[in-house]
């Protein structure tokens, strides 16, 4: 797989296609991306700042907005670490061992990605709702899950379930287990092996999965909308707060909260690009070592 560095050789396509075709294709691609990506991105911030900086700050410091921000942070702070632990365990099992039903397990791990967010919320209504499996028991013990914070957290865990596992599994499979075997043979315990040998090898892939998982956890709308109950100041996450403000025709405030989420998206993309670059470097190092 000795692919030459991009741009070093004269591009073959420069020989193949007439210049006007090249410029036309670039123009079409840029026009499409401008219409679908750049204009919406600019619009979020323009709409948020339409009535000036002071109104913008006021909208963000609003009591309900602050409680929505807090709930979003709490939700991500619970869901992301849990899915991180799962992701590490699953990729350890899948990448280091052979067992029957592995491909079925891989399909099941990916399952939450192929389920509509609305259905992801619905399943917890069926479990914890008043008419649900555990509804009566929960009511008798005065435990609130649905239309309360635990429901929002659980639905978010479901939605972001595959992210870390899906990044780590191919990475750990590609790396094999020779280094870990050496550590174990030399007397390292399982956890020592993981923290001293495996973790340094997978840290960028791990971070990559965590960042994507976090972005989705903070931005999830459909599933959370079903289980939240939309109680102002209590069970509204940031995306739900955006919806409420928008439906009340309070557009500036809606876009102000939305602009924070758009910033989160931009930071996510920047980190993701940086990590991809690091991963690429690591692979290049590995290729020269062996």
């Amino acid at each position: 797989m000795a692919t030459p560095h991009r741009g070093e050789l004269p591009s073959v396509s420069e020989v193949l296609e007439p210049a006007w075709v090249r410029y036309a294709l670039i123009a079409v691609a840029l026009a499409f991306l401008t219409l679908f990506l750049f204009v919406p991105l600019v619009a979020v911030f323009t709409e948020a700042l339409r009535k000036g900086w002071e109104v913008y700050v006021e909208a963000i410091l609003d009591e309900d907005a602050i409680s929505a921000i807090k709930l979003t942070l709490i939700t991500a702070a619970i869901a992301v670490p849990l899915n991180l632990v799962f992701g590490v365990a699953a990729s350890w099992a899948v990448a280091k061992f052979e067992f029957r039903g592995k491909s079925v397990l891989l399909t099941l791990i990916d399952l939450p990605f192929s389920v509509s967010p609305v259905i992801s919320g619905l399943i917890y209504v069926l479990l914890f709702g008043a008419q649900g499996w555990f509804g009566e028991w929960l009511a008798a013990h005065d435990i609130k899950i649905l239309f309360a914070v635990p429901g929002i957290v659980i639905a978010t865990i479901f939605i972001t379930f595959p992210f870390v596992a899906r990044e780590l599994i191919p990475l750990m499979q590609a790396q094999g287990s020779e280094e870990e075997e050496a550590a174990v043979v030399l007397g390292a315990s399982g956890f020592q092996t993981f923290f001293r040998v495996t973790l340094p090898n997978i840290k960028w892939g791990l971070l990559y999965g965590v960042i994507l998982c976090n972005a989705r956890a903070m931005g999830e709308f459909g599933a959370v909308s079903v289980v939240s109950g939309h109680i102002r100041g209590e069970t509204n996450t940031m995306p739900l707060q955006v919806e409420i403000l928008y439906n009340e025709y309070n557009f500036v405030a809606a876009f102000a909260v939305a602009s924070l989420l758009a910033l989160l998206a931009l930071v996510t993309l920047a980190l993701k690009t940086f990590i991809e670059w690091r991963l690429h470097e690591n692979y290049a190092d590995d290729a020269t070592e062996h």
Binding site: L33, G219, F221, P239, E243, L261, L264, A265
Partner: peptide, 15 residues
């Protein structure tokens, strides 16, 4: 290009 993955859907919707 990955913006639609990263941008929360509600934000995309109102925009």
């Amino acid at each position: 290009v990955d913006l639609p993955f990263a941008l929360p859907t509600a934000v995309a919707g109102i925009t």
